[in-house]
């Protein structure tokens, strides 16, 4: 399980954030004491850090700058300061992403998933059972036959694939699609999923995507 370290001085946000991450298939740790942060985060075993800019003792940007001298761990800056200057500064100090409060929780999860994927896989093709998936080409193949997915179908399938063994909500799928500039509505999502199912059936995986009523979908 991937570990995420939360550095946030507002206790209520930190608590809710932990709950969000814990229920989304991550293990999260809140850095309890915000003093001497640098020492602590250099010795963390987390895979990703969520860092607030406004820390009581040290500015998050400066902390990040120091941290980057020693470590390449993915860092997402989380802040209520909504200005281009802050973002540019954070990115130039080596942040991997920058999100402003109040953020859409699904989007935060999406960004986290993307970063972790980038950190671990580095462009490998994914696999699902006997299927090889090449997202760039939009291709599924099982060695003997191939099938072409549309962009939307591929986005949905990849997302399901990245979140195995748990229910993926329609809202998550919708957010992922919108995040990829596909601004579709509810009906279109339903259509896309049934088309994806039909294509998977064609290639021998009829029961791959299961519907959980009022909850979402799960990839078996």
């Amino acid at each position: 399980m991937q570990k995420i370290l939360i550095i946030e001085d507002d206790q209520s946000i930190a608590k809710e954030l932990k709950e969000l991450l814990d229920t989304s298939g991550y293990e999260s740790i809140i850095l309890e004491e915000v003093s001497n942060v640098l020492e602590k985060i250099l010795h963390t075993d987390a895979n990703l850090i969520l860092l607030d800019i406004n820390l009581p003792e040290m500015n998050g940007e400066l902390l990040l700058k120091e941290f980057r001298k020693h470590s390449n761990l993915p860092v997402i800056m989380v802040t209520s300061r909504n200005s281009e200057t802050d973002e540019v500064l954070s990115m130039s100090y080596g942040a991997d992403d920058y999100i402003t409060k109040p953020y859409n929780p699904t989007i935060l999860l999406l960004r986290i998933a993307n970063l972790l994927k980038r950190a671990s896989e580095k462009g490998e093709n994914y696999k699902y059972k006997d299927l090889t998936i090449s997202p760039e080409k939009g291709l599924l193949s099982n060695g003997t036959s191939e099938i072409l997915l549309t962009k939307n179908e591929m986005i949905i399938f990849s997302y399901l694939l990245l979140h195995p063994n748990r229910i993926v909500t329609r809202d998550e799928l919708m957010t992922t699609l919108w995040n990829n500039n596909e601004y579709i509505n509810d009906n279109a999502l339903t259509v896309n999923i049934s088309r994806l199912r039909a294509k998977l059936k064609e290639i021998g995986h009829e029961e791959a995507i299961e519907t959980r009523k009022n909850q979402g979908y799960i990839l078996l």
Partner: peptide
């Protein structure tokens, strides 16, 4: 003040989601 107010707003958003 706006940055301060955004903190409870962020908490509320997360609470609603959770």
């Amino acid at each position: 003040w706006i940055h301060e107010v955004k903190l409870p707003l962020a908490t509320l958003t997360l609470m609603v989601h959770n």
